[in-house]
Design a protein around this nucleic acid. Structure first.
Lengths: 177, 177
DNA sequence: GTCAGTGCAAACTTTTTGCAACTAC
DNA sequence: GTAGTTGCAAAAAGTTTGCACTGAC
């Protein structure tokens, strides 16, 4: 295993491994190993950051990979979540997903004004969360969403306040604020 | 201000205060002070825990309070969020809300099997999050969702594993995981 | 009196479901 | 061969929008 940047395994290695994990999961649960399922897994592990069903759909429709229906995407994503290969988020109205195998734990900074989502790492924080003692609950994973203003929006607001204008309109997505 | 249980102000005091905060917010932003808006605020601050638009709608339709349309609920909730009197969550597909004024900070334990949401307090954890240094971001609030199995589901699973059965079907809502 | 706010219903978006055709096993 | 999967299209669920009416200012 060679190490470059913050990636522990290289990309192909990860893809092979998750394929194997998925196969084991499918076997263990009596599901069929269809080409659609592997194509979806592969596409997801080729994508960076967050994605929603629609972008996954177009990604698969556009590329050399074969096309699958939205229904199949929804079905397969559920399996992948259960196999712990994908994490689901709900930043706004649309469900967002991201690959979870071999990824560093990270938190999400969500700008309540423009909706931009940034990832953030903090070892101390991760430790604090992982070591929190929970009564009557066995933790498998968690999501920390931190809301506020990104530097860009904050600067824009300061400018506008000086000139007495209203802040810009809010974006539709990710406005949990 | 008298203090009992974990409530700092008594209920009527809180309601009066948030009413005042809302009034100031409406004035400051050139919005009208309609009876609907105050009725919604009042109902929300009479409810415990989380609620969605639908339960708020029936709550207002059923009770002595006057009825408001769903459209108005959606509109008003946005104002209340901006006034920092309500927090929005997205556990599952439906948006969940909760009053935020004078409430202790708390985290959410979400059972990935039955969808049950429990609140949880942990001062050390709150501190760790609040004191995390964020680059280029000014934090206003955060949500920590912890996924796993509630003790009930975990016990049920153990029983079923012994007898070789499948775990029960998952609930529709709150299945991020 | 005016225009922001309301109620209603229609539109829209995202996700789920029913069913016929297909295919992994 | 058969039951799990897929694709499609229709339905459902949640939220937003257009418009005529109302009422806060």
């Amino acid at each position: 295993m060679d190490k470059h940047h913050d990636t522990i395994m290289d990309n192909q290695n990860v893809k092979d491994t998750v394929r194997q994990i998925f196969t084991e999961y499918l076997n263990a649960n009596g599901h069929r190993k269809t080409p659609e399922r592997y194509a979806i897994l592969d596409t997801i592990y080729s994508m960076e950051g967050h994605f929603d069903i629609d972008s996954l759909y177009s990604q698969m429709a556009d590329e050399e990979k074969f096309r699958v229906s939205r229904a199949t995407l929804y079905n397969t994503i559920i399996l992948l979540i259960q196999a712990r290969l994908v994490i689901k988020h709900q930043f706004g109205t649309t469900s967002q997903y991201e690959k979870s195998y071999n990824r560093d734990t990270h938190h999400h900074l969500i700008c309540t004004q423009c909706g931009k989502v940034t990832e953030c790492q903090d070892a101390a924080l991760q430790d604090a969360i992982a070591h929190t003692k929970l009564k009557r609950f066995s933790l498998t994973h968690y999501s920390l969403y931190m809301y506020g203003l990104c530097s860009k929006c904050e600067r824009a607001n300061k400018r506008n306040r000086k000139s007495g204008q209203q802040p810009p309109a809010k974006s539709r997505k990710g406005e949990n604020g």
